[in-house]
Every structure is written in C-alpha cells, then in structure tokens.
Design a protein around this nucleic acid. Structure first.
Lengths: 197, 197
DNA sequence: ACCTTTCTTGAGTGATCGTTCAAGAATATA
DNA sequence: TATATTCTTGAACGATCACTCAAGAAAGGT
C-alpha cells in the first residue's frame, strides 16, 4: 500500500531528547535536529508536526523513563529501600557523560517561560513524579517502616527538592566527589527515617 | 565637554537583569531589551558591547547582590544564625512576584551550553557563593557553635544544593505552602547542628 | 507491470536574529 | 556663540530562524 518509514520512531525520539536535553529548547535549532536525526525538514514536520510538539514528545518520553526506573526499584525492594536506592544511584552522577546531569523537566521549567503548553506539561510531569515519591513514603508509613506520624507529602516534596538540587548542583563541572558525598548524605537521611522495631 | 548619558547605568543593568532572569539568555531578544531599557540598538551596543557582555554584567550584578545580602546577615548575627536566617528568608519564596524564583546563576548554568564565557562566569560565581557558605560554617565550627569534627566544606556544599533545589522547586507554580515548609525544614536542619554546651 | 498510497527530499518562504554605522542631537569648554 | 566631544538614533546588513510544499522515491495491492 505504501512506503515504509526509514527511521525508527522511538530511536529518533531518543536522539531528539538527548539533543534537547543537552542544548535546551531555544538553544536547539532545526538544523541541529536535522543533523542529529538524519532527517530533512519535511520529514521532521511530517512526523512530528513542529518543534514544540516534538519537544513535548521527548519530554513525555524522558519522564516515563524516569518513572519506570523508580517503579522498577519499588517492585524489587520495599518502598523505603527504593527511595534510598534511587537517591544513592545518583552518587556517580558527577562522572556520567550523558546529555546533561540536571533533570530535563527542571531544565524545561527554568528555561521556558514563553511556551505555555510546554511549561504546563513539564509541571504536570514533575507533579506526577513527586506523586510517585509521596506514594512510596505513604506505603512505607503504612507498612510501619517509618513513624506513623510521618507526613508523606512533606517527605516526598523534600525528597524531590533534594534530587532537583543535587542534579542541578551536579551540572557544574568538576565536582564529582562533592556530588557523591551529597547523594549519600541525602540517601542517609532517608535511611534514618526507618523505625527500628 | 560632551553630552551626558540619558540613562542611569545601574538602573539600566537592573532592568536588563530582570529581563534576562525572567526569560533566559536565548529567550531574550534585542527587541525585548530595546523595549525594557528604552534604548535603541546603537545605544545598547555603545554602552554594553554586545548581548553576551551585557548578560555577563547583569550576572555579576546579580551575584554581588546575593552575596552582599548574606554578608549583611553575617555581620548582624553569628555565622550559624546567618545561615539559618538565609534559608528561612526563602520561606515566602512561593508568594514572591519577581522575575523568577530560581537562582539566575543556576538558570544560566542549566540553560547555556554554547557560550563558554558565560557558563564559566556563572560557575565561578556559584563557587564564590558556596565559598561564602563554607566560610560561615568554618567560623561556626571555630567558635564552637557546631561540632568540632564538622566538615565545613561538605556542610556548605549541601547548604547550597538545598537552596538550589528549593528555589528550582519553587519555580513551579502554585506551591507556596510546600515551599515554606521546605525552607523551614532546611533551616531547621541547620539549627539542629548547634552544640548545646 | 501498474496504480495507489505514504514517506522523503531540499530549495525556498517571510520573519526575526544580533549587529553596524553614518548622521543627528545634546552638552561642556573655549 | 562657536567648537569639540559624547551619546542617541534608526535604517539597514547578512545570517539564521522555524516552517512549507511541490516533486520524486519507495513499497504494498492488484
């Protein structure tokens, strides 16, 4: 019936995500995208509508990956252990070589003020991620792993703020040791919530 | 001998800072600057060389203001009290209406990857600010206000990471209560370091 | 082999980007 | 009042921006 697309859509979105994540929305031009995706403008627009829509798709993909990662930890261990492990997994952040160390959602919220749709999307995705942390703290409390009078919402918000701070801090170059120390300090703080029955 | 400038340079830099702080480097066009500064392109370039230089000047001004604020706290009270007050001052961040809630240095580091001079400047200014916090913790230790075995460097780094996280978190809209709770929680953590002789 | 449908191409769109510069306006000195 | 000096203006520059579209290439159905 028709010609088959010559690019794998998922892989293309991954490449676009890495580019946007590294260079930001305004800092990424369509020329950059053409080079990174190995596609000509017509194909990009046919497949993804426009730059804003493409960014939104990569943002959703980014958030989903992160949430899946935490969910995997949660199904492999208890909620409190998952939270601690999630934080401690960031200890080697200072030595990683990916597109950026800071969270792409945070980068979006800090950079974009003039594209309401993308701002709103990034805020929603951050709220979802936070809700996952809050739910984990709530389950930890229900299981008796942390004090019954704990406030899961406050704990989850603080947990996310610490991750945001850690990853933004890590965006600075040459602070690998400090980043590891910070991640472990924050992870220790989570572990110290545990009730020793 | 000559015509006098018709704009106050300091006030002009303040307006440019607010614009850059709110919209970012790439998100601010020279047309935006012309409107905000009420200056025509020729005047802007005669006074500030180019967009990058102007941004750098506003960044230096921003950091100086922040560092002066903390220094003022330090000369009005002890170092540990100053650190605690500095954090607690952020409790009403969620209700403020300024250009942005996130730190302009952090916004710069997260946004700008393709202008090496500005990135380096923002990193240097963040390191200076951190050094101020570290020095305050060191003095608190020397005065016996916190444990003698405290690590001022680790404490200062963590203090800055918490501020970065709090302010980036606050950039999200409609979280005034959570922001206040977070700021107080971080401030409490500082207060809990105090040795009760 | 032929038609139909879908995907890809890349030159080209008007708009906006950061920047320049010759000319005019304003003020201190002589 | 004339002159020298500095500041301001705004039209214009080439470059790049996000984006379009007519034409060609590829593959499934008949």
């Amino acid at each position: 019936m028709a010609r088959r697309p010559s690019h794998d859509r998922a892989a293309t979105l991954d490449r676009a995500r890495d580019l946007f994540w590294a260079k930001g929305y305004h800092g990424t031009s369509l020329k950059d995208l053409e080079a990174a995706l190995d596609m000509r403008p017509g194909s990009i627009y046919a497949a993804f509508q426009n730059k804003e829509t493409l960014y939104g798709l990569t943002l959703a993909r980014y958030a989903e990956t992160g949430q899946n990662g935490f969910a995997a930890l949660q199904s492999a261990m208890g909620p409190l252990e998952a939270l601690e492990a999630h934080m401690r997994n960031l200890a080697d952040l200072g030595t990683r070589s990916g597109p950026a160390r800071a969270c792409m959602l945070v980068k979006t919220i800090l950079e974009i003020a003039d594209v309401p749709g993308l701002r709103a999307q990034a805020e929603t995705l951050m709220a979802e991620t936070e809700a996952g942390f809050i739910a984990a703290f709530a389950e930890a409390r229900d299981r008796g792993e942390i004090a019954a009078e704990s406030d899961p919402e406050a704990l989850g918000q603080r947990f996310q703020a610490e991750i945001v701070g850690l990853r933004a801090y890590a965006q600075r170059s040459g602070s690998a040791e400090a980043v590891a120390q910070l991640a472990n300090a924050f992870a220790d703080r989570v572990a110290e919530l545990r009730m020793h029955a």
